[in-house]
């Protein structure tokens, strides 16, 4: 029995348990429900508006973009949030105290965050099938594209979240800041309205981050081909999408392990206590 492989397998079952635990947790359900309903309401109001210059429903373009956004949101903030909380409450230290425990912990988190991401995408997608009739005409190629965009999106954002969560000195603060950063990025990444409506430098900025490419990739998968006309240069830029998301993935996967290891090495019980005392001081 290879111990690392053994721990990785335990990590998979750990991730499944974490996922099940969050599915029955009222707080987690509430959060998913509220965001999903809010997104569906936006699409409901957009269903009769049309994409400028075409006869396509605006919702037919917004829905895929939103799915891309959900992928990034869930994967990045899921990773940042869980690391932030679990450095504080001792979960990480507990993993450190087990033989190969960090392997189990990380695999578990990757599994649970990925499952949560896929489920929240599916919830909005199913609602969208009723609101956006053109979606039901998506062919197998479209669904396949959606699958790889989600996968690549997870790879590009989940390790990034783990890095941010590891580098933070104050876990609570960084969770809030990441939320703001992703929110701000959403505003300039062509999720709710086309990127072409923005100033040139904002467009250039959006091109650097994974969020724009996730939205674009999802649109290329699920929007009618004619919607490509509304994109920059009138094309889906599939190769560029793979290139940018792939670059973020490679960078994340290269940087995350050493940074996580460094963070884990530094975690100790008294440090945890110190951070908790500081947190209590802020509240009190």
């Amino acid at each position: 029995m290879n111990p690392t492989l053994h721990a990785a397998r335990l990590g998979v079952s750990r991730g499944w348990t974490e996922f099940k635990n969050s599915v029955v947790n009222p707080q987690d359900i509430g959060f998913t429900a509220v965001t999903s309903v809010a997104l569906v309401v936006v699409m409901y109001f957009q269903r009769d508006a049309t994409l400028p210059g075409t006869s396509l429903s605006l919702a037919a373009v917004t829905l895929p973009s939103v799915l891309g956004m959900l992928t990034a949101f869930n994967a990045l903030l899921g990773a940042v949030g869980s690391l932030a909380v679990e450095r504080e409450d001792g979960t990480l230290l507990r993993a450190k105290a087990l033989p190969q425990g960090m392997v189990g912990y990380l695999v578990g988190r990757i599994v649970s965050v990925s499952l949560t991401t896929v489920i929240s995408v599916l919830i909005v997608l199913v609602a969208g099938l009723f609101l956006v009739p053109s979606l039901t005409r998506t062919g197998p190629g479209g669904w396949l594209t959606m699958a790889w965009v989600i996968l690549l999106g997870l790879l590009a954002t989940l390790p990034l979240g783990a890095i941010v969560g590891s580098l933070a000195n104050s876990p609570q603060t960084v969770a809030g800041l990441s939320m703001l950063a992703v929110g701000g990025l959403t505003a300039i990444s062509g999720i709710f309205y086309p990127l072409t409506a923005l100033a040139g430098w904002l467009q250039a900025l959006a091109h650097v981050f994974p969020l724009y490419w996730l939205g674009l990739g999802m649109r290329s998968a699920l929007s009618p081909a004619s919607a490509a006309a509304a994109e920059i240069g009138g094309s889906w830029h599939t190769l560029e999408t793979i290139g940018v998301l792939g670059a973020w993935s490679v960078a994340g996967l290269l940087l995350a392990p050493p940074i996580l290891r460094r963070m884990a090495r530094r975690e100790a019980g008294s440090l945890m206590q110190l951070r908790r005392d500081r947190a209590l001081q802020r509240i009190g």
Binding site: H6, A7, L10, S13, G90, A97, L98, P99
Partner: peptide, 29 residues
């Protein structure tokens, strides 16, 4: 074996399941 001063982790897990899960890490050793 390590028992630290304060833990607040794994609040959502059930006792037996958690002990069983952690125990499995030691099986190869």
């Amino acid at each position: 074996g390590v028992v630290l001063q304060s833990w607040r982790d794994h609040g959502r897990w059930r006792v037996r399941h958690l002990l069983d899960h952690f125990g499995r890490y030691y099986a190869p050793y």
